[in-house]
């Protein structure tokens, strides 16, 4: 077992089932304007199930997992101390549940393209160059009040094969762990004011405009670092736990 997993927390806290997911708020599985979904979307009804312990629990990681530079994408792939090209930014926010409670110890894993819109990946063929000082991955864990922060460069937009001229708005991918496996979530953060947001076939898989706006981080001048970095604030909401005022009775009683 790797060192990381021994850092998992194992102290007792309040458990309980999560509030049912609002599937009209999320993108549906089958979204033909995003072509790859056509052959990768389940066609049959999902099996609806109240949470059991298998979903109410999930991996929770300790702060000892995180290395000093894990949340600093400006430096965590730096060669010989050189910095990546691009607009320096701070991204920060809170992870809350649907009832507004902060969620501590949430592991956030991030990945993104470089300032030119190029990913460091062998299957990536976009003409924009790799940046020798930018890896494009990072991670951080929320504190007791659900706060997180990381430093990076603003990623560039990039074209992708879907329609003949589709471009992704600038975005950062987030993988989010909560307290239970039912909360597991992958999403993307976008930047306020990007004109590509309204044209993006992937963002437009989300039916509700208010839900799309929930993924757009505003510029946060109050938290920018003068002469250093602009800041964007991106709050994340995970499923909340149902209140358990009443014990469930065993079936048949």
């Amino acid at each position: 077992m790797q060192k990381a997993e021994t850092a998992m927390k194992n102290e007792k806290q309040q458990s309980g089932p999560f509030i049912q997911r609002d599937r009209n708020w999320h993108p549906p599985a089958y979204t033909p304007t995003y072509k790859t979904s056509i052959l990768r979307s389940p066609q049959k009804a999902l099996l609806s199930l109240d949470n059991t312990l298998s979903e109410m629990t999930g991996p929770v990681f300790g702060h000892s997992l995180i290395g000093e530079l894990d949340n600093d994408l400006l430096q965590n792939f730096s060669q010989n101390g050189d910095l990546p090209i691009g607009e320096r930014i701070v991204v920060h926010g809170r992870v809350l549940d649907e009832k507004g409670h902060p969620v501590p110890n949430v592991l956030l894993e991030l990945w993104q393209a470089n300032a030119g819109g190029r990913y460091r990946h062998q299957k990536e063929s976009y003409i924009a160059p790799l940046d020798p000082n930018f890896g494009g991955c990072g991670r951080t864990i929320t504190d007791d009040d659900g706060n997180y922060t990381f430093r990076t460069i603003r990623p560039g937009p990039y074209p992708w094969p879907n329609g003949v001229n589709d471009w992704r708005p600038a975005h950062i991918h987030f993988s989010v762990f909560g307290q239970g496996f039912a909360q597991r979530l992958i999403t993307q953060m976008y930047f306020e004011g990007d004109p590509l947001i309204a044209r993006c076939p992937i963002l437009n898989t989300i039916p509700d405009q208010a839900a799309i706006e929930q993924l757009v981080a505003p510029l946060d001048m109050a938290n920018s670092l003068p002469m250093d970095s602009l800041a964007y604030k991106f709050d994340i909401v995970l499923r909340g736990r149902r209140s358990t005022y009443f014990e469930n009775r065993r079936e048949g009683n």
């Binding site: 790859t36 990946h121 989010v176 979530l185 989300i206 929930q214 909401v237």
Partner: peptide
């Protein structure tokens, strides 16, 4: 109540993160 953050595809480069 707050709304859960909507999901987006993991995309082709999920392994980077």
């Amino acid at each position: 109540y707050l709304k859960e953050t909507p999901s987006q595809t993991a995309g082709p480069y999920v392994h980077i993160g």
